[in-house]
Write a protein that binds this DNA or RNA. Structure first.
Length: 586
RNA sequence: GCGCCUGUAGCUCAGUUGGAUAGAGCGUUGGCCUCCGAAGCCAAAGGCCAGAGGUUCGAAUCCUCUCAGGCGCACCA
């Protein structure tokens, strides 16, 4: 079914058209002055300017044609040029009825579904997941759910950082520690035996400090990198072992977080096609030699800033992550036939992606695929600088999850909640609530803006938080339990709203499709958060205003139960799109 | 140096792409549990939208400048 705003806009647009004005001026949006109307159209002023006629006269023309509509209850003009609209309760009620009967709760499928590759997460081998990975993972996960729901075939790819200099550093460090001078498969296997993730982390950290401090170490690391990339004996084997250890730990982390990927490919996956790709691009003249490196110039005449070329092959023979990303575009657009490739990556990588995207289009590697960098803002500490713990390091994701779970457990204890639950059930619930706080706390921020990492905010369960939404849903479930009704037994029909609270709730329920569509178009989970929060607030208001179970009028009671059911389903859908679970009790 | 982003209530942030009287949450103050779950509800106080010009019927939003932060600028990823 088509969203409410579309339906209203269609009516007003055709009124503009038959009155002789541009139908595009008939766009209807929710009113900014709820005291004057539920919806508004601001197209009159534009029409007045274009046709050199008084706004009042134009509005009269348009309004006269809307009077016959059975959708609008009142339509009025307000200076300087607004048309205020209110729908009839009958129309509203029947619209919400339709939403309730619709499997998709009023959310349309997109007209042209395609294959979408979604690249997010991007954890690195030998580095524990830390809070810096939170945004990409959580936003990416929400977007993959949103895109699937919209109707696309989504292929999410974790894009492991398992290639390049960090791996070289790690290999060089291990060689050092084991005193390996010449590497082959057998020595590699021996060297990597019995290594744990913690060993890798510790080694990586040591190597990172080393390479920063001494040019000699850096040179060795780069040498090992080239060795790996050129498939010299032993390197690949050693690498394989290191990756295996790390991936096992990563799977656990993502599992805890409730984030999944269709593809666990890494940068390494695309390495095989790189030599051929470079050769081809050179032959085609897209790539050229410059200062000892092979590059693709991507500058354009209208550029306001200096646009460095994309470096395909470094002067030492190694490849950069730009090379890998280009090879990945080739595979995704070519072999996977992606219609769109989306990257959920920190916005500081903006320049990198303009380079890659330009190169991909220029060389034809992108085919017809749409390329988008879905940038997100940096997570800062309270001091405004990129987040660090007091110790100076970054907080591990696992520790953060433990902390929110612990806080939820404490909260349950304080209010004597779930006392009849077993210990494992309590922990499970605490995890669900904690993760809700964590995910909502992140997703409710506008994707592109930086935000301050405030631990307290993730540890709060009141107000505009994930648990608030869960709570609203849980209370509805509780009503159904008390009424001894299962979800599919709540089948009463709606009656027209009697109170403002009911009407406001129905208006929100009628608008889910608009919100979900906007979230999709803007690739913005925070739009879902906003809507879900408003819906939960309106329901809470209604809940306090209309006492459902003690209502004597059976028709009203049935209608209110039905409203509650539709609300519960919408909350469930929204939270599902955010990657947040809804417990039965909390 | 060049380029991009940000500056809105005490704090953290929205603001439907130029619309009417700038909104939430937290915090503060005051109410509501013999009534479906108080992780809730109701209400109040709190604003020179960094500053100065400009564009027009109309600006937090667009343009110019100033101030204050942040970020990025070929062989790390």
């Amino acid at each position: 079914m088509s969203p409410l705003r579309d339906l209203l806009t269609k009516q007003v647009s055709s009124a503009f058209a038959t009155a002789g004005y541009d139908p595009a001026l008939g766009e209807v949006v929710p009113s900014q002055r709820p005291d004057l109307g539920q919806f508004q159209c601001s197209g009159v002023l534009a029409a007045a300017k274009k046709h050199r006629r008084a706004p009042q006269a134009i509005a009269d023309d348009v309004i006269a044609r809307l009077k016959t509509s059975d959708v609008f209850g009142s339509v009025s003009f307000a200076a300087p040029g607004f048309i205020n609209l209110t729908v009839t309760d009958e129309f509203l009620t029947s619209f919400v009825e339709q939403v309730g009967r619709d499997e998709r709760l009023g959310c349309p499928l997109i007209p042209e579904p395609g294959t979408v590759v979604l690249d997010f997460g991007g954890p690195n081998i030998a580095k524990a997941m830390h809070v810096g990975h939170l945004r990409s993972s959580i936003i990416g996960d929400s977007l993959q759910r949103l895109f699937r729901f919209a109707g696309h075939k989504v292929l999410s790819d974790i894009h492991l950082g398992d290639w390049g200099t960090p791996m070289g550093m790690l290999i060089a460090e291990l060689q050092h520690r084991r005193g390996i001078t010449t590497l082959d498969d057998a020595t590699a296997a021996r060297a990597a035996a019995a290594l744990s993730v913690h060993d890798l982390e510790e080694m990586y950290l040591a190597a990172a400090t080393q390479t920063r401090a001494s040019d000699e170490s850096l040179r060795e690391a780069l040498q090992a990198t080239v060795g790996l990339q050129q498939n010299q004996p032993g390197y690949r084997e050693l690498w394989r072992q290191l990756v295996a250890v790390s991936v096992a730990a990563l799977r656990e982390d993502f599992d805890t977080l409730g984030v999944s990927f269709d593809l666990w490919l890494g940068e390494s996956h695309f390495s095989d096609r790189i030599p051929g790709l470079v050769e081809r691009l050179l032959a085609q003249g897209h790539a050229v030699m410059s200062e000892g490196a092979v590059v693709i110039p991507v500058a354009e005449p209208q550029d306001q800033q200096e646009m460095p070329p994309l470096i395909l092959v470094k002067s030492d023979g190694g490849y950069t992550y730009a090379t890998t990303d280009l090879a990945a575009v080739d595979e995704r657009a070519g072999d996977l036939r992606a219609d769109a490739i989306l990257y959920v990556v920190d916005k500081r990588q903006g320049l990198h992606f303009t380079q890659v995207f330009r190169a991909a289009r220029k060389t034809g590697l992108a085919r017809n695929a749409r390329l988008e960098h879905l940038a997100f803002g940096t997570m800062n500490g309270p001091d405004g600088k990129p987040f660090k713990t007091r110790a100076g390091g970054v907080m591990k994701l696992k520790d953060l999850i433990d902390m929110v779970t612990e806080a939820a457990l404490q909260r349950m204890q304080d209010s004597d909640i779930a006392t009849t639950f077993s210990e494992t059930e309590r922990r499970r619930l605490a995890r669900q609530v904690g993760l809700a706080a964590l995910k909502f706390g992140d997703l409710s921020n506008v994707r592109t803006s930086d935000y301050v990492f405030d631990l307290d905010r993730f540890l709060r369960f009141e107000g505009r938080t994930g648990p608030y939404l869960q709570y609203a849903a849980v209370r509805i479930k509780s009503i159904f339990r008390k009424a001894e009704l299962s979800d599919d037994e709540v089948g009463g029909s709606l009656i027209a709203p009697q109170t403002a609270g009911e009407r406001d709730l129905m208006l929100a329920l009628a608008s889910l499709g608009d919100a979900v569509r906007q979230a999709y178009e803007r690739r913005a989970p925070n739009v879902l958060c906003d809507f879900a929060h408003t819906l939960a607030q309106l329901y809470s208001h209604f809940y306090h205003e209309c006492h459902i179970l003690s209502e004597g009028d059976p028709g009203r009671r049935a209608s209110w139960l039905r409203l509650s059911q539709i609300t519960l389903r919408q909350l469930g859908l929204l939270l599902g799109l955010l990657g947040i679970e809804v417990p039965d009790r909390m």
